[in-house]
């Protein structure tokens, strides 16, 4: 089945939003779930991307991704009318959406994309939502407008101070926690950011949910490549997660495992870029 791209937008340097036909996935999907997506069945990797949104009338899903290596750079080079060979999902467990009370949602970089549907659902479930959005610089801050519409309060920070407050997300997070009244924290972003968010909330004993981005192959529990240690036990991110109690996750191990194929990935990206340049 071919999955046609019906809309594409560049959100910032290297970050793209794509709307893709995937009727069954759209119908079944709940916030927090992801798809495995591949351009060419004979050659491509199966890349996990969170479903940022769905349109049931059009039978489409929206993904937001950062072009970081061979496969995502290739995705970015596709245009409306092109098709993906595979969009499999929705995978992973949906977020536990309940009325918790006051929830702080922290998004870092591309993490805003997977965070967005969760915030939307939490808001609909009657929670008071404070969103903290962080990025390296102004250019990389995505979805601010969308978050504004669904958050009760929004705090933006950049590493270099080019927009919002010059700070790391953990600063405003720590301040909110110290004031009390926070019932839940949801943090999604680079593993290192989630690690420090969890350290921050741990001090105040605020339950914290994180969504992990381990390296995946099948996404159905068959390969074990996505394993992480949570509370001293080995879990498979694709079938046991992707969301976990952040206070129990061994982030150092996750970060190391994310580097498993660095050597190969750099080679692939370099060769791919050469080819792309040749075409331009």
């Amino acid at each position: 089945m071919a999955h046609r791209i019906v809309d594409k937008e560049k959100l910032s340097e290297n970050v793209y939003r794509m709307e893709i036909e995937a009727k069954y996935v759209a119908e079944a999907r709940e916030p927090g779930q992801f798809v495995l997506i591949a351009y060419d069945n004979d050659r491509s990797e199966r890349i996990p991307l969170t479903i940022a949104d769905v349109d049931l009338d059009k039978g489409t899903i929206t993904v937001i991704f950062q072009a970081v290596g061979k496969s995502t750079i290739e995705f970015a080079s596709l245009n409306v009318g092109d098709s993906f060979d595979a969009v499999a999902g929705p995978l992973g467990n949906p977020t536990d959406i309940e009325k918790y009370g006051k929830v702080v949602c922290v998004g870092g970089g591309i993490g805003n994309a997977p965070l967005y549907p969760i915030v939307k659902a939490l808001k609909q479930a009657g929670n008071e939502v404070i969103s903290i959005l962080g990025a390296r610089n102004k250019e990389l801050l995505i979805l601010e407008e969308q978050f504004k519409e669904i958050s009760d309060e929004i705090i933006t920070v950049t590493d270099d101070g080019s927009y919002g407050r010059k700070a790391l997300v953990t600063e405003p997070l720590g301040e909110l926690c110290s004031k009390g009244e926070i019932d839940l924290c949801v943090a999604i972003g680079p593993a290192i950011m989630m690690k420090f968010c969890c350290q921050t909330t741990k001090k105040y004993d605020i339950p914290t949910i994180v969504s992990l981005n381990s390296i995946m192959v099948d996404g159905t529990g068959m390969c074990g490549g996505c394993r992480v240690e949570v509370g001293g036990e080995t879990k498979f991110t694709c079938v046991d997660g992707p969301e976990f109690d952040g206070h129990k996750v061994d982030f150092d191990q996750l970060i190391k495992r994310l580097g498993s194929y660095k050597k190969y990935e750099q080679q692939a990206a370099a060769e791919h870029n050469c080819k792309l340049e040749g075409k331009l």
């Binding site: 192959v217 068959m222 390969c223 074990g224 490549g225 080995t234 190391k256 495992r257 580097g259 498993s260």
Partner: peptide, 15 residues
């Protein structure tokens, strides 16, 4: 067992 370079046969063979 979760060090990098430790695979399940399923993952190794699937890749």
């Amino acid at each position: 067992e979760n060090l990098i370079g430790v695979y399940s046969a399923n993952e190794y063979l699937t890749r």
